[in-house]
Design a binder for these strands. Structure first.
Lengths: 149, 149
DNA sequence: TATTGTTATACTCTATAACTATA
DNA sequence: TATAGTTATAGAGTATAACAATA
């Protein structure tokens, strides 16, 4: 019965994670994006091209997998490989206009807070936001949970 | 610049989700559990057997996939298929003692709150917990985010 | 007729290892 | 030598469709 607010908060977060997984899969299906394709599109920000290697690290998978994932996105015209001048080994990945559009659709559907959050009293929404801001601020500083993102 | 605490809180949650994905993958690798095997083990609670169909719904995948996922867990001796008396079509899935052990290990590694949460001032931990409790309470009531178990 | 679980199929994701072309 | 990206391979997850057994 020892009170451990951190552990309790984390357990609650885990429950929200799993509801979020359902939402993620559903949005991906609506837009014909397999999970890793969705992640890749999410991680490629407009105007901030990434190399294959950087994308592999962000996706947390072996570099060899990225070839296929990028192939399929490129075939759909959502991203493109670009050469880089100073190192001819590297290929930079950039969103096409179509890719930016689809990314925006996907992210906006994910960004819409579920009704359960919207239904909270405004003061609870603010409390949640403020507490999470401190968690994320710590995340940015220390990065030990994972090298994601 | 219109303030929308719900949207802001949700955006912050998304960032935590992605750090959590890294952690989930890492724990799974440590225990030789592929992601869906990990999910299946998590969803099969000790003393609460589920049918293949129920597990498929909880995993949010087609029932045909569950055959293979369950096969691999059963080959490792972590779960077992059991017949049920009143309906001979159904197979109930139950954890073995080894499965309960591994599940406990996996969940306890996931349950350990990351340093970023532990590092919060106690009052922030409590605020986070209390706000999330209200989110999850809403989740239980309405279930529109996803049918995830 | 409808449902449970399985099989068959084709595609996507996954890590490992070996390869190429650069550096 | 080391690194970026690719290919080859084998195993795992995925949806669809068809099937046998049972309800």
């Amino acid at each position: 019965m020892a009170s451990d607010p951190a552990a309790e908060a984390w357990a609650l977060l885990s429950q929200v994670f799993m509801a979020n997984r359902a939402h993620f899969l559903r949005v991906g299906q609506q837009l014909d994006l397999h999970p890793m394709q969705f992640h890749a599109l999410r991680l490629l920000e407009p105007g901030a091209a990434k190399s294959m290697r950087e994308l592999a690290d962000s996706l947390i998978c072996d570099a060899s997998n990225v070839t296929g994932i990028v192939d399929r996105l490129e075939e759909r015209g959502l991203i493109e490989r670009r050469a880089v001048a100073h190192d001819r080994r590297v290929k930079l990945l950039a969103l096409t206009p179509a890719g930016e559009d689809l990314r925006e659709q996907a992210l906006s559907r994910m960004a819409e807070p579920p009704d359960q959050v919207r239904a909270l009293p405004l003061e609870d929404q603010r409390a949640l936001r403020d507490a999470l801001q401190r968690v994320v601020a710590q995340l940015e500083e220390t990065k030990p949970v994972g090298a994601a993102g």
